[in-house]
Design a binder for these strands. Sequence first.
DNA 1: ATATTTCTCTGACTATGGTCAGAGGTCGTG
DNA 2: CACGACCTCTGACCATAGTCAGAGAAATAT
Lengths: 288, 288
Amino acid sequence: MDQIELVRDFNRFYTQRLGVLNDHYLGQGRPLGEARLLFEIGDGADLRELRSRLGLDSGYLSRMLRSLGAAGLVTVGSHPSDGRVRTATLTPAGRRERADLEARSRDSVAALLDPLTPAQRERLLEAQASVRRLTRLATITIEAVPDDTASARACLHAYAGELDLRFPEGYDPATLIAPGTLTEGAFLLAREAEQPVGCGLWQGAGPIAEIRHVWVSPDARGLGLGRRLLTAIEQDAAAHGITTVRLGTHPVLTEAIALYRASGYRAIPAYGSSPYDQLAFEKRLQAT
Amino acid sequence: MDQIELVRDFNRFYTQRLGVLNDHYLGQGRPLGEARLLFEIGDGADLRELRSRLGLDSGYLSRMLRSLGAAGLVTVGSHPSDGRVRTATLTPAGRRERADLEARSRDSVAALLDPLTPAQRERLLEAQASVRRLTRLATITIEAVPDDTASARACLHAYAGELDLRFPEGYDPATLIAPGTLTEGAFLLAREAEQPVGCGLWQGAGPIAEIRHVWVSPDARGLGLGRRLLTAIEQDAAAHGITTVRLGTHPVLTEAIALYRASGYRAIPAYGSSPYDQLAFEKRLQAT
DNA sequence: ATATTTCTCTGACTATGGTCAGAGGTCGTG
DNA sequence: CACGACCTCTGACCATAGTCAGAGAAATAT
């Protein structure tokens, strides 16, 4: 069996087992859609938000809320500051039912874990964490976007804010590449489920280009996304005729430096004018 | 976050990602139920079997088959030897559609694996295999059943057949416990999704009991089921006032012997009359 | 040979999930 | 204040999934 078949086989297996679990604990009288809605409302939520989170048609949502309302589980009121928006809140009975669902779900998982020894439970959790990390990494997309899109700028500002905290001397956001000035090079944006989670760019007319602003969002760290981003930037640069990339970095960014070394970068004398780039690295790209 | 929450979180994450994948490749015009049916028919299958495999109502199955038949994908004929049973077969067009579904499913998985390095793919597969092994182990049930039920006897005969192959001198099935004679003790049966996958029994009026016929089906090996079974037998025996268990075994059963040693059994002089029990082990049980 | 069981099909029915067009209220902008 | 954009609700649809009772044919037990 090849890798693809193994993965498919796992997916089939796991959805089957999960399906049995889920249907069992959620299928207690209430239809699945309404049960999920009950979950998502939590401590009150705007309908607009619920719609986008659950991907529902407005008519459909409205009808489900009416049904939950008739059962005395939910009340729908108006938004305090925007009269168009309505807000759903759980009644005490709704909160009770939601807690019931939660408890049943927890029970079914507890029953699953029960036959395992503590060591086996540990191993299961580790393996699940690995599957999850690698699946997340694999489903993150990396794509070239103009450097003045909202997502790109958001990443850059997060990057600047973080450096400002980490550098003893702080970081001046004016150091960032100015919007719309990346004419020779490319800005790559990493997205997970449409949310931006990382970025990086290469810049220069060739044959040498500079790699800058490589950043990974805190909640996407530990996945190996930094390495994927760096590789993607190198490949994109190489495809545009770049033969050598270099970059400057700051001594406090030890993980980044380790990544560069592990990716085949060699230290070179600092070349740039930026006061932050106290260290510099270089890598010769293979034509692919 | 405690273990239960971690597992729930993984399950939510994985079903969401899978849901996206599945809906994408299966949701190509054909309803999910019919697509699954197309898969399961494969190279022809009896309706009775399809019904039990997919858990369908006979009317529902019949209607779906009519719909697939009208689309020219399936033909339903009679069973050659049993006129009541009908058999579904894919037409060439049905096989083509099925192959299409397969290909789309493979493609979506291939796209998932693509961004990963070979080492990461390896790690993903290993982690999935671990999750699967442990989930299988955890969902296997172990239950006391009368020793003359069909499932119990089936396990015992599989056990005897296997010993007959492994022992140089063969194994005489008459050595097995006779049906219905286990009055002092208990026969424990392990089941995975209702299918028997292992067994074992303890026997004796106490305070010493004998453990016999511990067996794990070949396709459930490597999960740790042997250990779970042994523990379950010991617990059941202890709950019935047994303070010491002993067992005899054959020198060629090296994995079993390793399991006994690892589970706290000490070698004792052979005590039994059975010619196969050339080695013997004993363990004192803790009152729980 | 007759009764019972097994298997499939049919038609009627229900629930759930989901889409669509339009009505009507509310907000921000010119 | 008029207009367009935004948000929600309503009612009318539709497809899929699933259940149920009963009829009819074939096999099996008595």
